[in-house]
Every structure is written in C-alpha cells, then in structure tokens.
Design a protein around this nucleic acid. Structure first.
Length: 490
RNA sequence: GGUCCUGUGGCCGAGCGGCUAGGCUCAGCUCUGCAAAAGCUGCUACAGCGGUUCGAAUCCGCUCGGGACCUCCA
C-alpha cells in the first residue's frame, strides 16, 4: 500500500515519511485518561486529535489496531511515588468504593467521547485487568538488572539504564541536567537514585486496591501499565504512540526505559504529541482551576462561557488549529467557528440539490489533491478546512448560476466533501439539523404553503409576522427565487 | 537555572526563502417586496533592531513580550 504521509516524530523532532513496520498495518497506542474525576476539555482535545489521526489512517486504507488504555489503578498524587492513591482518596471523598469511582468516571468519559463523535478504540485495556502482565514485566526488568526491590517496593534504576541507553532522548535532555534539577534524596528515601521511579509500590495497610506479587501486596506504578499493555497488544515494537505533550518528559520517557530494559528493543517508531489547550494564554488544567467540563461547555453554565456550544462546533473549532499548536480558548473564537461550521454544513445541503451542466469550469481534481496534500503533511487540518471552504464557495456559486459543473464533477465533489467532513474530520449533522423529525417537516411544509399564498397576495405584514414568530422559536426562513427554505437554528 | 515552543491584519489561525491560506467581524455592491442566505469588492498583516540573500513573515544574531516541561495532570 502506497501512501505519502509525513508524521512529525518527537524522537527526531522532524517530519518523517510514515512507513509502517508491517505493510498496510498500523499499531497505534494512545495514553488514555485516569478515571478518578471528570475529563476536562484539555483531555478531550488530545483524544479528538488522535481520533482524527486514526480516522485519516483508516481513510488511507490502513488496517489499524488502535489501543487506548484506561488508568484505573496505580496513580499517586503529589511527589513522585509518594502521597495518596488518587482513586482511594476520591473514594473517601465521595464515600464510594475505589472501583465505583473507576466505573463512574469511565462511563462519563465514554459519554463525552461519544458526544464528540470520537470512534472507540479497538482495544481499551485497563491497568487492573493487566496486573499479571505488569508483574511479569517488572520481574524481567529486575532479571535484566535495571530494577531493584526495597521493602516491597520495586524501583527502576535510571542511572544504570542511562549507561547503556539514553534516558532523556525523548526530550533531548542529558541525565546530569535532569539530576541537577531533581531534589536531593532525604534519609527516608528508599530509592538509590534521584530519578529512580517505582514500578511496583507496597500497599499501605488500609489500602483496598492491592494485589499479591513476588514482593508482597502492592499495586503497579503508573508508567508500567502502558509498557505492559502496549507490548501485549501491539508487540515489542509498534508504529505510533501518542499522548499529550505533558506526558512526554516523565511518563513516556519512563515507558521507553521500561520497555527497552525489558525487551532490549525501542518500543515505538513514531512518537506523537498533541499540544495543550489554553484559556487566556494559560494552560487549562485541573490545578490551575481554569478548566471547564465538556458538559459545562455544551450548556454554557460556567463563568467563562457566554453561551453553550454544540459538540460538533467545538470539534470543528479544534480542527481549525493544528494538533501541535496550542489552542487558545475564547468565546469570540468559538463563535467564529460555530458560524463557519454552519456555513460549511449548509453548503453540504446545497450540494445535494445542485443542477449539473454539460461543462465544468472548475478543477475539482486539483482541490482533491490539495486536501490530500494537507493531510499528508502531518495532518494539517487547518489547510484541509480552508480547501473545504473553497468547495463551499464553489457549491454556492454553482447554486447561484455563476459557475458550471458537470454531473461527474458533482459526484466527485460529493465524495470529497463527505469523505473529509464526515469520515476524516469526524463531524456529523447535529440532531436538530437531521431529517428525522417527520412531523415537524410536515407542519413546516403546511406553514410555508400558507405563507406563500399570503405573499402572492402581497400581504407582507402577515408574511413577515409569520417569519418573525417562527424565528422566535429558532426556526429561520429564507426566501429564494423559486422556493422557501427553513432550518432550525441552534 | 536547564530543555524547548512561540509572537502573523479588529479576532482566531495556516504558511516557515519568491506565487502574499482560510474562518469570523466590519464597510460597500449584486440579488431581493423586505429580511436572510449567497456571491463579489475593500480593510493586505507578519513584535523590534541588525545580518545573510537577487529576494525573508519564513534563515542567522541580538533585544523585548508570551508559554510549556523539568513535581500529579491529555
């Protein structure tokens, strides 16, 4: 299978031609959420970006195994390898069992993904479902002498690892610099090196989420689950591993080290990182308190929001920025996208009723190539969308009899628009725009019929009143030469 | 302090050596009973100062802003 796709690889900091390890097949792993609280919009941006990447790979004809994990154990808060387990803490707070917390927020996460029209991954493994695999991997790392056990906790020996491999390769950092920026070990520390991190952590007596291991009762460290699950389902070396940029320095760096120490192979060929979502120039995060939940965004119930925005408008808004650029949120920007999105979707409707001519004075093939070129250049959706707006302009011009198009070109244009808008960008008609409501359609037909009769009698006061009244309940009416079209506004 | 990213028109946001995306806003025009929609036209920008080059928003240097990671976070 031929493709001309170039991907920006974090490992080399350059765009590289995408050559999958096995022809036609792609292994894709994305770090999923830690389900101890609601996903916020920043998290969503990452998953929407990778949904686009997944969709475009599908569009190119690849067979893909897309794995995205659910972290449901082993995530500590505060300083590394200390502090409370996030799930246990939240469980106490909400007076629930830790696994009830996991269940509650997993469901919530899936609901939000569905609202954004994200396709589900092919495999969605959980950390708690792969304790055995993680233990086996840790045993192998110990056997390979890159980890050591102290009092029921197992640590990864970073300095030892760095003698054979480059620990800081993913972020282009030298070990000495990293060490210099880490606080000194106190007398109470069990670990030998400042950068050492836990693979397995001894459970506290009161802890519920615990499993037996060769080192006693405990639970896995955060990083080991991704190494264990990605190699289980995708092999020791696979094509693409993705996640947010904030995971690059610690989580992904440790993942590489674990896999390398266990299998003596680089785990991933292309590392991809998506950029952050900011609000007024500052990164949206739970700790900064400037984040809002998807639900709040849809309803507009948040101090930062002037109104609610539909999931598809938000998705379109995100697609107008490249995945490696920061995306700054503002009501103004979101409203601009909302309008642009409506215009694009309206043109799609117009496309269905376009009248063909014998000749075309347009080069549709050329536009199609521009769309492909944009996506092949590291998934450049802003340029793709610019091309789609060119199509919208063409459609409207043909509709106004200002341009001509053949029936063949209409077919190509339809295929192109539908392919990129629905399949690649993952947008869909919002419920209120769909034709599902037959009663409403029937009623509107009757009303518009009556209004036309009134108009023929030149009773414009009555016809305008009808239009105004309908507009009050969000139904807008547009009179064209031949007919009158209506639509439900958001 | 270390490793990086970034500064583009009223706003958002591509481009990253020559052909000066796109969306939204605003103004004018065409169409129209009016409105809306649509189309056309205009407002034509690359933080500042130097340098390289026939040519720089794009490469290099400096200055000034903004941000990320290095501590849990997509």
């Amino acid at each position: 299978m031929d493709n001309n796709l170039f991907i920006f690889n974090t490992l080399t900091r350059t765009k590289e031609k995408f050559e999958p390890i096995s022809k036609g097949l792609v292994g894709l792993y994305v770090c999923g959420p830690t389900v101890y609280s609601d996903v916020h919009l920043g998290n969503c941006r990452t998953f929407i970006s990778f949904d686009l990447i997944y969709r475009y790979l599908l569009y190119l004809g690849f067979k893909i195994r897309y794995v995205r994990n659910i972290t449901d154990a082993g995530h500590l808060e505060g300083d590394r390898d200390e502090g409370d387990d996030k799930f246990e803490k939240k469980a106490r707070l909400e007076q629930l069992e830790p696994m009830e917390i996991v269940q509650k927020y997993t469901i919530g996460f899936h609901d939000v993904m569905r609202a954004f029209n994200n396709m589900p991954p092919n495999i969605e493994p959980t950390a708690t479902g792969h304790i055995c695999e993680q233990i086996e991997m840790i045993k192998q790392i110990i056997e390979n002498k890159f980890a050591y056990e102290v009092n029921g906790t197992v640590y990864f020996d970073v300095e030892k690892y760095n003698k054979e491999f480059s620990y800081g390769m993913l972020t282009n950092r030298l070990l000495d610099d990293l060490i210099a920026n880490t606080r000194e070990l106190s007398g109470q520390d069990e670990k030998r090196g400042r950068l050492d991190f836990a693979l397995w952590i001894k459970a506290k007596p009161e802890q519920i989420m615990r499993w037996p291991s060769p080192w006693g009762w405990g639970f896995p460290g955060w990083h080991i689950e991704c190494s264990a699950m990605s190699s289980k389902y995708l092999g020791d070396t696979f094509d693409i591993h993705g996640g947010g940029m904030d995971l690059q320095a610690t989580h992904h760096t440790n993942e590489i080290a674990q896999s390398q120490a266990c299998n003596h192979k680089a785990p991933v060929k292309y590392w991809m990182h998506t950029n952050m979502l900011t609000v007024n120039g500052v990164r949206m995060s739970k700790t900064a308190g400037n984040g809002f939940l998807p639900g709040e965004l849809f309803t507009g119930e948040h101090p930062l929001l002037e109104k609610g925005y539909s999931p598809m408008a938000v998705r379109f808004f995100m697609m107008q920025t490249h995945y490696r650029s920061t995306l700054d949120f503002s009501n103004e920007a979101l409203q601009a996208s909302e309008k642009g999105y409506a215009r694009l979707m309206a043109s799609l409707k117009t496309l269905d009723s376009l009248k063909p001519s014998d000749t075309s004075n347009l080069n549709i093939k050329e536009i199609e190539k521009k769309c492909m070129d944009a996506m092949n250049d590291d998934f450049n959706t802003p340029i793709l969308i610019a091309c789609l707006f060119d199509c919208a302009r063409i459609i409207n011009s043909v509709n106004d009899n200002k341009e001509k198009i053949t029936i063949e070109d209409i077919a190509i244009l339809k295929k192109l628009m539908h392919g990129f808008i629905f399949d690649v960008l993952g947008l869909k008609q919002e419920a209120f725009e769909s034709n599902s409501n037959k009663v409403l359609h029937g009623v509107m037909e009757i009303i518009l019929d009556i209004r036309n009769e009134i108009k023929l009698k030149k009773d414009f006061i009555a016809s305008d009143k009808l239009r105004n009244d309908l507009s009050k309940i969000n139904i807008s009416i547009k009179d064209t030469k031949e007919t009158t079209i209506w639509s439900v506004e958001q």
